[in-house]
Structure formats: structure tokens, C-alpha cells
Amino acid sequence: MQTKLEQIRKEAQNALEKLDKLDELSSFRIEYLGKKGKLTRILRGMGSLSPEERPKIGQLANEIRAHLEAEIEKKTRLLEEEALNQRLRDEAIDVTIPGKAYHRGNLHPLSIVLNEIKDIFLGMGFQIAEGPEVELDYYNFEALNIPRNHPARDTQDTFYITENIVLRTHTSPTQIRVMEKEKPPIKIIVPGRVYRSDEVDATHSPIFHQVEGLVIDKNITMGDLKGTLDVFAKELFGPRTRTQFRPHHFPFTEPSAEMDASCAACDGAGCRVCSYTGWIEILGAGMVHPKVLMYGGIDPEKYSGFAFGMGLDRIVNLKYGIDDIRLLFENDIRFLDQF
């Protein structure tokens, strides 16, 4: 009987090793360990054994059963693992096939750069002000120290609605509107759309956009103007950017300046972008003219301030290397998708 048992153990061991499918395992279990299985059948002959042999054979039979149970369990895990690995192999995909298109649209480059500019000035404690595009001549010109028949009006060819109402030629009228409403300290930027009767070409558009800035407080100096705008230029064009201030003339500031930034394309060495000067004109600025402060109801004896204004469209073109302002207004999707 012992021999028979040993034989079964061997036979079962061999059969188990040959198995390679999970469903064959259960029939294997029935074949050997089931109620009518080979091991059970042998144990039924236990009655014919002597009392000394019985416990020994019983122990051996139990050993074999336990062993086979363990082997089945082991084989099951192995086959399951293999089956999973096979499934994973079968499920392999081509990871180079393009991803699903989740179409996010995009903001216009004018908005993208404006957001950047707004962030820079918000970080320096500026607020954002807005004003009307159809504007009174008074705010657009007179209160900015540009009286009627002043030649400075020539540089800003104006669309007139009536004798006293114009399409604003710059965002500067909002300076006066804010001064009338608020007391210093004033620290604002004014982004907005402006109009000049220029024929359209690669660098001119009758409609374009400006960002104006105004700071008024006690003891504001031209050094503050330079410092603030230098920080701005470094933030916008990169930390290596240098600035240069040249004297200029605007009726609403005195002293007035134009600010150049070192050309980002060549780091100031001179290239086609900067016409080989190393510098690119970025904005006009100056200390607010005392007459303008007075028009705004602010006492120039007590307060001083600076103002600046830049062409947003031009800065967008500079930043992205766009060579024609008309592209900004054509709105070709293939253009808008690039930013």
C-alpha cells in the first residue's frame, strides 16, 4: 500500500508538471484528490491494514494530500501569473500613435502678452484702469496739454466724431479721468484700444493697442521712472535686458524720455532686428507735466509723478518675431494656434 501511495505521489507530481492550463488544474484536483479520486480510492483499502500500519499509512496519505494541495496552489499561482503576463503582452499598444486631440483654443497673442504685462505691474503694486474709446477732445488733448491747433496734434492723426468727440488716439486720457476721481497715491496701468487715421501697412494699423502707466505720489522722481521701467523691461524681455533712456518730447510729460531695451535677439550686439543698433525702442515716458497734474486736480507743488505708454502690438511683434502687424488682425487660425 505504501508503494502504491508512493507511486501515486510520483504519478501526480509528473502530471502536475505537464499541466499548463488553469482549467486543467481543477480536473487534476478531482482526478487525485476528489471524492472518487485516486488517493481517496486507495485509502478506502485502509481497512485491510494492520493496526500498526494504519497510522503510518494514514500519515503518509495525509502528507501526500497536503503536498499535492500545496503543489496545486503553487502551480495555480504560476499559471495565473503567466496568464496575466500573456494578457499584458497581448495588450501592448503603439505608444507613438498620436494622442487624442483635446482641442483647447487659445488667447490672442495680444491678450497673452497683455496678461504678462499686467502681471508684472500688478506685482509692483499697480492697479488696472480703463477708459472709453470714444473720448472727449478735452481728455484726449486739451487736459494733456495739447491745445487746439497745437502741432503735436499732427503726430496723432485723429478720427473725429464731432468737433468735441474723437476716437482716442492714445490711452493717456484715462490718466486725467483717474486723477479726477482718485487722490494720490495713484499707481495704475491702462491697457486699451486706440485709433489713428493711418493707412494700413506692415507697421501701421488705424486701430492698435497701448498700455499706459501713471504713478503719482509725493517725491516721485525721474529715478523712480527709470527704476520701475528697467524692472519692467527685465521682467518682460529677460534678466539680461538693459535699458537706455533718451530725451524726447511729449506735451503731457516734462522731462520726457524714450526708453530703448537692449535687443533680445542679439543681446545688444547689433543685428537685423534692431537695425544694427543693439537697441529697440520700447516706450515713451516722462515726469507728468505740471499742467496735466493741474488739469487732473492735483497740486504739482505737493505731488509729482511719472507716466509711460507703450504700443502693445509692437511689443507682441517683437516678442514673437512677427514682421507684419496685419497678421494680428487677420485672425488666421494657423497663426493664432502658434502662441
Binding site: 505691474f121 500688478l122 506685482g123 509692483m124 503694486g125 499697480f126 492697479q127 497715491p185 499707481k187 504713478v215 505720489d217 509725493k218 517725491n219 516721485i220 522722481t221 525721474m222 529715478g223 523712480d224 527709470k226 527704476g227 520701475t228 528697467d230 524692472v231 537706455q244 533712456f245 533718451r246 530725451p247 524720455a257
Partner: peptide, 17 residues
């Protein structure tokens, strides 16, 4: 103009928002 030192405004702290 280049000899005017660059400074940042002193005075009231303003809140940019």
C-alpha cells in the same frame, strides 16, 4: 539721462489687484 540713478518708489505701499 543715463547718470540718473535707478530707484524704486518709496512711500505708501500699494496693493496691486
Amino acid at each position: 539721462y543715463d547718470k540718473i540713478p535707478m530707484t524704486l518708489m518709496e512711500g505708501t505701499v500699494s496693493r496691486g489687484r
